[in-house]
Write a protein that binds this DNA or RNA. Structure first.
Length: 659
DNA sequence: TTTAGGG
DNA sequence: CCCTAAA
């Protein structure tokens, strides 16, 4: 049987049985129960200004002292607040509060094969969790704090500043420090996220490779795994489930939109490969971005939208046993889709119409009538975004998911086979010729679901994301699926070391953020980590409803994506540091990787936060924002408003530039 | 392109 | 979130 046949079989199965045989879809919305600690490596912007200079630029120096001693006014209440743990601290700790159900992609695509995956437990997506440590505030219950590196002047405001030989006490709260936005030495508040979205191993226990016995009957219906986070995030919120390729949105009443034709936010075309791996729309990375991406580029990062080709790499998980030889006991094909392909010599010849005698491959099975069997225990649907009112029933949730998945599958799919990360393009090859029949290769076998080129969506694609466009060429998959080569996940954030199985603490809301980068975590346990199913770059696409939208040409309103607590935390921290009015910097600093958050969005969010902080808790809606954060919002708002007013009256004299 | 605000 | 005037 040729590879093509195999593909056809797979595709056929997927389509024909999608209504009743879909294996449980692994929904990334679930959070990974594993608690994780993440380490973040912070980097500075390349172009950031010297810390000290920034301080003055910010108007921190009191004009009265210009030219002489520098006196900084103390903003009442701030400093103390900064360092004291508020009663709410615990409550608002990222661990408990930040978790949310909205998770985004991550596993874009390759199929997961073999039990090793299940065994490891994967989780890659991540939620960002704000973390403040070191000289700054540490959030209890959050990750371990990390030490700041640098010159030691980490908290400008708290520290005594030695200026011109004089020691001046800086009274301003350090968060408001005017230190350069890109403060060099201060570790940026890192938000860490852990992805809860891990693909949840469907129910079963790990099954050995050869075992052809699926452990768990995959249900005929979708199972949605929710994490506990969900609870924490409040049941008050619509639960959101996201998978990579399609997103359904529910507004008001249930509404599912298909993403296939939707447009994507334009990604940075120049995005490096690793960056691309970062979840696309999902991530918010409140960390400094690596130097690799110059600010200039960032500036343009998100200004226009382009349609990207939706490369849905749904993950098809190969069965527990992955591929097994025929001689192995046949499992009660209870779960998943089982595919069989014969790879007998005869077939080979027939398929190729040419001599199939492959050199060197004289293994025992060559002469026998061996079959290569696949048991796909599950596959992922790329990006599914589902939002339901909290009072929706589980049944409606299931239906919604089913509708979304059905819509996606119904759009026409194409299956791709990846072997060792490379796309097997030659459909005429036999499995054996393609080395698919060899057990050793099983680990490297993967399947991808790609949108059928046929649909109108194709033309809409743009080459922005090479990754998406040319999945075939992308070598990454290899790393992701090959156990032996757990290449470090190259996430968008070069700065974040990858926590391995992360966190439970974090919620699924990782839409943003979250990518962990292993760069700094060389010592990670590779065996379990990096399961690379990184969030694809496929940005969550709001898909257009199947039924033709009249206004297909119209610019669609962006999907509403509530800020998670983690994002709010990141925003607050960034604003505390940078002040209001520098939204672009805020964006770069804390949401650089959250492509769906523009500086305008951040500005708007700040506006609403200020408003929220001023109204009574009873009047607030949506996911509750920890009071502690709201307090900080008000404080920061007051502080910066004052600064702004001050500047207007008395523009900072040049004398501020003492250094 | 960014900011700043109103819608 | 959108839309836009200003800068």
């Amino acid at each position: 049987m040729g590879a093509f046949d195999l593909l056809a079989t797979v595709a056929g199965r997927l389509l024909s049985e999608r209504h009743n045989s879909l294996t449980p879809c692994n929904i990334t919305g679930t959070s990974n129960p594993t608690a994780g600690k993440e380490i973040i490596k912070l980097e500075h912007f390349k172009d950031e200004k010297p810390f000290k200079a920034e301080t003055f630029d910010q108007g921190s120096c009191d004009e009265s002292t210009l030219g002489s001693d520098i006196v900084i006014q103390r903003q009442g209440g701030y400093a103390s607040k900064e360092h004291s743990q508020t009663p709410n601290a615990t409550r608002s700790s990222p661990a408990s509060a930040i978790v949310k159900s909205e998770k985004k992609d991550s596993f874009a695509g390759e199929s997961i094969i073999s039990s090793t995956w299940a065994e490891r437990g994967y989780s890659l997506g991540t939620n960002t969790i704000p973390k403040k440590c070191g000289t700054q505030r540490c959030i209890p219950g959050s990750m371990e704090s990390y030490e700041y590196e640098g010159d030691g002047i980490n908290t400008p405001l708290q520290a005594e500043w030695l200026i011109s030989g004089k020691v001046i006490e800086r009274n301003a709260p350090d968060m408001y420090s005017s230190e350069d936005p890109m403060d060099l030495d201060t570790k940026p508040p890192a938000l860490i996220s852990s992805d809860s979205s891990a693909e949840v191993p469907s129910c079963r226990d790990r099954v050995p490779y050869n075992s052809s016995v699926p452990k768990c009957g995959d249900g005929m219906e979708f199972s949605v795994y929710r994490d506990d986070d969900e609870h924490s995030s409040g049941c008050t919120h619509p639960s959101t489930v996201t998978t990579n390729a399609c997103r359904a949105q529910h507004i008001g009443d249930r509404r599912v939109r298909k993403l296939l034709t939707s447009k994507y936010w334009k990604g940075d075309p120049t995005m490096s490969k690793d960056r691309q791996l970062a979840n696309t729309d999902v991530e918010m990375k409140p960390i400094f971005r690596s130097r690799r991406m110059p600010c200039r580029r960032l500036r343009t990062q998100r200004s226009s939208f382009k349609r990207k080709k939706l490369f849905e790499r749904c993950s098809i998980s190969a069965s527990d046993g992955g591929i097994f030889r025929d001689d192995i006991t046949n499992p009660p094909a209870k779960s998943g889709i089982k595919l069989e392909a014969s790879d007998s010599p005869a077939t080979l010849r027939g398929a190729n119409g040419a001599s199939s005698s492959t050199t060197g491959e004289k293994s025992s099975y060559e002469s026998g009538d061996y079959h290569v069997k696949f048991s796909i225990k599950s596959f992922k649907v790329p990006e599914l975004f589902i939002e339901l009112p909290e009072n929706a029933t589980v049944g409606s949730l299931k239906r919604t998911v089913l509708d979304a998945v059905t819509a996606f599958l119904g759009g026409g799919l194409r299956v791709g086979v990846l072997l060792q990360g490379k796309k097997v393009r030659d459909d005429s090859k036999t499995l054996r010729q393609a080395n698919i029949a060899r057990a050793e290769k099983l680990d490297n076998l993967g399947f991808t679901l790609e949108p059928n080129p046929r649909p109108a969506t194709a033309p809409l694609t743009s080459p922005d994301d090479p990754h998406l466009l040319h999945p075939d060429d992308a070598p990454e998959p290899l790393a992701r699926i090959a156990p032996e080569k757990p290449a470090p996940y190259q996430g968008a954030s070069d700065a974040t070391p990858q926590p391995v199985l992360t966190s439970a603490a974090n919620g699924p809301e990782s839409d943003r953020d979250s990518v962990h980068s292993p760069a700094d975590a060389p010592s990670l346990d590779r065996t379990r980590a990096l399961v690379p199913v990184p969030q694809m770059n496929v940005e969550a696409l709001p898909v257009v409803p199947l039924r033709k939208s009249r206004r297909s040409e119209m610019v669609q309103r962006r999907i509403r994506r509530p800020f998670s607590v983690a994002e709010v935390e990141a925003l607050v921290q960034a604003v505390e540091k940078l002040g209001t009015g520098r939204w672009r910097d805020v964006k770069l600093r804390a949401f650089d990787d959250a492509k769906h958050r523009t500086y305008v969005d951040l500005k708007d969010k700040w506006k609403t936060l200020v408003h929220t902080a001023r109204i009574s808790p009873q009047q607030r809606r949506g996911e509750p924002v920890p009071q502690e954060l709201l307090d900080r919002v008000l404080s920061a708002h007051a502080y910066w408003s004052q600064q702004q007013a001050k500047l207007q009256v008395k523009p900072p004299a040049q004398t501020c530039l003492l250094f």
